[in-house]
Design a protein around this nucleic acid. Sequence first.
DNA 1: AAGTGATACGTTATACTATTACAAATACGT
DNA 2: ACGTATTTGTAATAGTATAACGTATCACTT
Lengths: 162, 162
Amino acid sequence: MTPDVTCFSAHKHNDCVANALRAAEDVCAKQKLRLTPVRRRVLEILLEQHCAIGAYDVLERLRSENLGSQPPVAYRALDFWVSAGLVHKIQNLNAFVACTQPAHGHDPIFMICRGCGTVAERTAGTGDGAAERAAAAAGFHVESTVREVMGLCPNCQSGSVK
Amino acid sequence: MTPDVTCFSAHKHNDCVANALRAAEDVCAKQKLRLTPVRRRVLEILLEQHCAIGAYDVLERLRSENLGSQPPVAYRALDFWVSAGLVHKIQNLNAFVACTQPAHGHDPIFMICRGCGTVAERTAGTGDGAAERAAAAAGFHVESTVREVMGLCPNCQSGSVK
DNA sequence: AAGTGATACGTTATACTATTACAAATACGT
DNA sequence: ACGTATTTGTAATAGTATAACGTATCACTT
């Protein structure tokens, strides 16, 4: 697992955006998915920050840009990206975050800072942990997993958020 | 970790209920929390099955028993038990499940069967996994974690659910 | 037993999150 | 250009959760 701590520290955010958009284009090309204006814009909006954004916040942005005004517009685009693996839903927040490691397919771990809202993604090796062992022991067939860690990022630990 | 697979197989469910209620009484006594009729009833309702139940389903039960009719009644009781550690919220389902292992405080893992809705809880040792290592590497201070595994339980794998 | 402060409950209203359903428009392969 | 599949526009509604405030109850002290 790469110790990619960039989300919690200063970094060339333009690179994040460019990488993710390129990955998105690749995925769409390979899987013959349509990269429509709304979809592209939604991904761009999510990519602006390393924070999870609610569907209705996305919608508000779309509305202000005349790209759509009703909830299904936002939800459809978000679901599209979630299916494509380029956006993840943070269950804890009912919000969505762009994927910073699109290449690694499986078993993401999210660290969610309650101070600044930053969501950092890491990829765990598969079959590594207690959950997999417990499932195997119980004869449970795993289809997907959610792993979200709430807490304080390095910046917010030293700051005023208690 | 105890290989407690009872949730997925026939078992004396009365014992589950009795154990949990006794644990609830203990916790309330020790922490001087009030075990009111609404709270007790909500816990009993959750304990009836090993499934997660939505707040509004709980509310409907309460309503039919004249124990409350408005959302805050249900949410307050549910939040009470969640704070006390005797009920967990399943983020994936926006629903609540009674805790079957109240003694073990930390880091639960939930296996959620999409066939029958059963939610089985296991307790992971702390600090065991990739998430903790990733957090440590990033300097992230962990306050709580969510680990939910979706899939099919042993019964539903052989059944008609595909 | 009455007073007092904290806790819990009743109720209204509202905010936030998400989906269904169907019609219109657009893109794609032939 | 045609027919089909996909996407979008739009209205309506379903589902989840909280804010706010007044009333009642509990527990502790005097």
